[in-house]
Nucleic acid binder design. Sequence first.
DNA 1: CCCGCTTATCTTGTATACCTGTTCTGGCGT
DNA 2: ACGCCAGAACAGGTATACAAGATAAGCGGG
Lengths: 250, 250
Amino acid sequence: MLRGMQTSADIAERLLEALLAGKFEPGSRFGEQDLAAVFGCSRTMVREALTRLSARGLVNVSPRRGWYVVEVTREQAQEVFESRRIIEVGILNNARQVSPESLRRLDAHIKRQKASFSRDNAGLRSFLLGDFHVCLAQCLGNSILAESLRDLTVRTTLAAMRFQSWKDATRSFNEHREIVEILHAGDLAAAASAMSAHLGTWDVKLSVPSERDSVSLLREALQPVDRPARDLHTRSVAKSRPARPARSTS
Amino acid sequence: MLRGMQTSADIAERLLEALLAGKFEPGSRFGEQDLAAVFGCSRTMVREALTRLSARGLVNVSPRRGWYVVEVTREQAQEVFESRRIIEVGILNNARQVSPESLRRLDAHIKRQKASFSRDNAGLRSFLLGDFHVCLAQCLGNSILAESLRDLTVRTTLAAMRFQSWKDATRSFNEHREIVEILHAGDLAAAASAMSAHLGTWDVKLSVPSERDSVSLLREALQPVDRPARDLHTRSVAKSRPARPARSTS
DNA sequence: CCCGCTTATCTTGTATACCTGTTCTGGCGT
DNA sequence: ACGCCAGAACAGGTATACAAGATAAGCGGG
């Protein structure tokens, strides 16, 4: 039973982190009671947390059926990347300079990313690779867009899972490091270019695989899953039910 | 008693619209029971709606005291404008072209804005002037950023109210119309410039008034209010209480 | 043996009850 | 008369109860 400051905001945060860490497949179902049991609280809190995530577009609710991790469509995924490029490149181009403190923070973050490779922790790695972008936005002084980026990085992760457009983690890390180096040099325009390229390599891959038809979907779904259960609170979610219209709420 | 599809998303939407229409001052208090009475539902729904708004950063909750329309600080206001410029200019620069249908939609929106001037409806006017930016983002094919812009336009309105940085509505409208004309000509880069200028005139004004000290705050507060009560659901909110630490949630 | 219908169970949707912290008000003391 | 303290009223925080819809299981007919 996961504890510690059980407000609905905490629960939402926890779920968001897990999402960013890639612990839930798109389309996974979140049962209110299961989550309540896991977090040791009542359904009320869970519902509030899920409502928060819903408002941020990370989960959908299908009436009387449950909450489902969003299944980003290909078009939406393109939009996500477009949005990220606009925001992240925009922030870099808009910034005047990077404070020494921010540079230190970024260095520390890079170090954490690096460390996550030695420890074999795919979840943490995924989380940090996404979180870097949020951290960068914060360091550049725009916490509003940083917050938006949190949602977008999560959706990126989900889109990547869905379309299996894996970007090599090592490569991502190297590009992150490169960006930070450029920032140390103070060349924000160059950093913006590097960021644009960094994001570009993602969606190129994303657009490569052919459109997903129901046959390939089936074939893929029926592949044996040799991946073991991953983590504590992964266990509480049943895999997605047959699927039904789920409405996305504000 | 306001009715019609009383889901929490609807209520949140309604509140957001009212916020964008400038019907609530920053710092206004939303009483759960009052809202429940107004919407003819239970506190549960109201809480859910407010939770949604809270997740989008439009209201804060002060524990055991209530929900308050966010009071954007000057620094946050600057961030809002920076974010808007990054997003809106970015979208325009990123777009390839504008579809005829989108142009029609924009024309229609301009027409509605124009109409709102003849009818003397300040709320509707404020709403439409903000909504135009959202509409534009949607027309340019990025509904994700359009959604983010909804929050940002609301915060812009709130910041403007707080710092009394009124931008002349007629001027805003003219600039909107100009932008749409440029889009008709197909010059997206020029449109981006126009948008940048459009947003620029706002925050210039915003930065002009000096920092607000408690004395001027009092003097201002004690001015006689000759403005009559505006609309139905404005009546349900008590003016802000003395103020206390309100924490902003995710 | 398979398909369709009915019934049971499970899960969410919504309201409400109760608890707790905050604010307001009245009384007391200085 | 002012300020402080205590009690009451009020509002939000949380859990729970009950209703309604959806899924799954069981049963009967073709």
